[in-house]
Amino acid sequence: MTQYVLKRLAGLVPTLFAIGVLVFLFVHLLPGDPARLAAGPDATPETVALVRKDLGLDRPIAQQFVRFADGALHWNFGRSLSTKRAVAEEIAERFMPTFWLTVWSMAWSVVFGMAIGIASAVWRNRWPDRLGMTLAVSGISFPAFALGMVLMQVFAVDLGWVPAVGNDSWRGYVLPSLTLGAAVAAIMARFTRSSFVDILGEDFVRTARAKGLDERRVVIKHAMRNALIPVVTMMGLQFGFLLGGSIVVEKVFNWPGLGRLLVDAVDMRDYPVIQALVLLFSLEFIVINLAVDVLYGLINPAIRYR
């Protein structure tokens, strides 16, 4: 087991390296001169030259990469071009709101999604299934930003039950996490249903029924354990989806998180912030995928690590 994790961690090194190179090259792919971007539009040629030297942009590209990689390893990405503050500081401030938003979205969507999926599989082709699957296919078809606008209008503006913006209390989290989690709940419901339908047709389930167990025990004790194994994998994959989705949802609800920081940074061409955020998002995504693989092995005794 430990060996497997170590092996997987070692396997990440080339991927991380490739991502690092891409993120580094990003600055050089930008149209225009990065030194001029950093110095600002009104800077004199002398200032631009000074900034170029200061950022190390006058050195050979290999040296620049070493400098970038060294900074990245020490979580140092320089300063934001628009606010002049350290990028690491900006990110630290915005990290928790996005983290909690993602966690809450994941929590409710997994619980509801799996419940709908299980109900649909157990009452297959009857009304709970039809209702559940209609909701689910609608959930994957309704864009998050439109859902967010609708929820905000109805529950915050018209009914006034929860605040439309702000993350001061738990009530501020209700609408954004509903919006962000809706698509994930829908995907989980569809996936859980198909996984359960397969399992309920297996021989061991028929055996359990044949020996006279009541249906509830069959579903909970025999089917659930086996059906949930692929569902866990799916859940991990959805984290990446949430990271991406948070970018859109944070704009709708004016959320002070990483997603909005990224959107603003792209608007302002604030490339140190963009670089750091792209690196951070990718890193999170990779770590989560690794964690899911390991978890998958723990709950599925059929898998033996080589």
Partner: peptide, 16 residues
């Protein structure tokens, strides 16, 4: 390794 929309944002940031 990049969530889809993030990759798209990165490309848009480069290409405009």
């Amino acid at each position: 390794a990049f969530p889809g929309i993030l990759l798209a944002i990165g490309i848009v940031a480069i290409l405009g």
